[in-house]
């Protein structure tokens, strides 16, 4: 049994709105960076089994580009900004006019640029959330990895690992139509952060 089994639909809706506000701001920031319209999906908020989380981005062995940030403050958690390799290269091309050297190799400059994009997006996601909830949410310095999705995502599940075999995840995908760029924001609040978020938003506890 998980502590989240008792979450009513209403609470999940509140978390969806949390994802909406955060990712909406981040998508706007990305749109400005790239000077292109960015669409986003309705956030998906589910309690998902550890094994299934990587399926969201193509499976455990799918190689992805991930920027990871730990969120400190009142409601700590883990945040990932995840894009496919192809989308990452397209983004670099558009943003910096970097002539992409190779499909699956990254230069220091490219790493640094992607990391900074992740930083800007996560920053706008979290600052809008902090404004909305009046909780302090401070991102740590971002760290970037290009590796198997399973290996990367499991790192963000450690806090939930102590509680059970599933995690509550706020997942928002964004899309750029013309060049079919696609990416995900994953916000995985620590188990104890959910009550704090609910309390801050005036959701009565059961």
């Amino acid at each position: 049994m998980s502590m989240f089994d008792g979450f009513h639909d209403f609470k999940l809706d509140v978390l969806k709105e949390v994802g909406n506000i955060g990712a909406g701001n981040a998508a706007t920031a990305l749109s400005r960076l790239l000077d292109k319209p960015i669409d986003m999906t309705v956030p998906r908020v589910n309690l998902i089994q550890f094994d299934e989380i990587a399926e969201r981005v193509g499976g455990s062995e799918q190689v992805v580009v991930a920027v990871f940030l730990r969120v400190d403050g009142d409601a700590p958690g883990n945040m990932f900004f995840i894009i496919e390799q192809k989308s990452a290269k397209t983004m670099l091309n558009n943003l910096l006019s970097i002539k992409v050297a190779s499909e699956d190799h990254y230069t220091e400059m490219e790493y640094s640029a992607l990391s900074e994009i992740g930083n800007i997006l996560a920053g706008s996601y979290l600052s809008s959330l902090a404004d909305f909830t009046r909780l302090s949410m401070v991102p740590t310095v971002p760290s970037i990895a290009v590796d198997m999705a399973g290996a990367i995502l499991s790192f963000g599940l450690l806090q939930h690992g102590q509680m059970g075999d599933s995690a509550l995840l706020i997942d928002t995908a964004f899309l750029e139509g013309e060049e079919s760029m696609e990416g995900h924001f994953f916000l995985i609040p620590d188990p104890d952060s959910f009550e704090k978020i609910f309390r801050a938003l005036g959701v009565p506890s059961e």
Binding site: F50, S60, G150, A151, L153, F155, L158, G161
Partner: peptide, 23 residues
């Protein structure tokens, strides 16, 4: 074998787990 899981195999089987990071 999935994450946070274990299993056994025998004879001509192969046993696999994917995406080990800090695990």
């Amino acid at each position: 074998v999935g994450m946070a899981d274990l299993g056994t195999a025998s004879e001509d089987e192969v046993i696999r787990t994917t995406g080990l990071g800090s695990c």
